[in-house]
Design a binder for these strands. Structure first.
Lengths: 193, 193
DNA sequence: TTGTCAACTGACCGAATGTTCGGTAAACAC
DNA sequence: GTGTTTACCGAACATTCGGTCAGTTGACAA
């Protein structure tokens, strides 16, 4: 029998708590002692469930990146006007950001301090390159204001998208769908009446 | 006589190097040993010029916040349509971000881990409140699309502005003025043709 | 009743951390 | 030349770090 299994942690619950604390204090600002306190166990108990601090980070970053990679794979197979594909990518990005909020939040703060972080940055750059290319396509098709540099548009557009990790809290501020609607409305159409 | 003063460091040059390294590795991810290496001196030499690591952070954050505070003071005295004042605040924000890029970059990564960081977050919140109010005014005057929540507009708008610290490098990608022009064009008017 | 095993604890390790301290070489002041 | 100041070094400080390991506990199976 398996059900209920008493009380206790497993690799999944440890990861969830760890990512929450990493986001509160920053990865480097979080000690294993901090994690232990948040889990209600001693430091050594953590090592029963996971191999170490850096692997905790690696698993968290993979969760974020797997979502973004899946998006790219899906969308590479799509066709139609680039501007419409771009809008879909933005909407899907918002969805993934919200669904995997703590993991993506962590990813967006990574600086490349370790091999793990550098690997994550490389995977992230693939996503950036994909989006960047898509915006250029849309510009080449004449769907983006010609006075705006496509590279700049990409950065500002995803600056707005990524800022979601800085202020969005689930349950507040509407559903992910409404959020995506508003974001697309503002970035594509402008905030001015 | 004063001129040239041989070679060597002073509190100012230590701060400049420290902030650069803080931004590369993160504040918590940077050791005094790292700073010493970047300065070409030993750890102890740093303490001759500055009182410690946290004061280095405090001074850096003050540089960023003093700029933003000055902007608020200036703009509180301004009049005219809120939408025009908002556009001016955005342009000035871009200017300050670029002028004080390393300092503002550091500020935007602060999580509140120490008393120093919490004080900085409080000052930053004053700026956010000011901008938030301004967007609401503009909405009340009918200058912002009524289907967009003003609070959301504020966050996305400054999500785009603040993203500058993530990718802008001086000398590349045009002058600060052109950057502000493009940013205002896109956020106010939309990226679509 | 005994044995097994998952899930821990507590004591500990070596390394790294931020900071302090005693000393010192070179430049300057007189 | 003598004393003082400036800018630093090297060693040491207490503390904290990520991580290890032998042992304990309590639920459950036989």
């Amino acid at each position: 029998m398996e059900r209920e299994r008493k009380r206790g942690h497993d690799p999944e619950s440890v990861l969830a708590v760890a990512v929450r604390v990493f986001n509160e204090r920053g990865y480097d600002g979080t000690s294993m002692e901090d994690l232990a306190r948040a889990l209600g166990v001693t430091k050594s108990a953590i090592y029963y469930h996971v191999p170490g601090k850096e692997q905790l980070l690696a698993r968290a970053l993979d969760r974020a990146l797997d979502g973004l990679t899946a998006l790219v794979v899906d969308e590479r197979a799509a066709s139609g006007p680039a501007i419409e594909r771009l809008e879909r990518v933005v909407r899907q990005s918002v969805r993934i950001l919200v669904e995997r909020l703590p993991y993506v939040t962590l990813l967006l703060r990574v600086r490349g301090n370790s091999a793990t972080e550098q690997r994550a940055l490389e995977r992230r750059r693939e996503f950036d390159a994909f989006v960047s290319h898509l915006v250029k396509e849309a510009a080449a098709e004449g769907s983006i204001r010609p006075d705006l540099d496509p590279a700049l548009v990409t950065r500002l557009l995803f600056g707005a998208v990524n800022s979601i990790t800085e202020w969005y809290r689930p349950g507040r501020g509407g559903s992910p769908g409404e959020l995506a609607d508003a974001l697309v409305a503002m970035t594509f159409g402008g905030l001015r009446v």
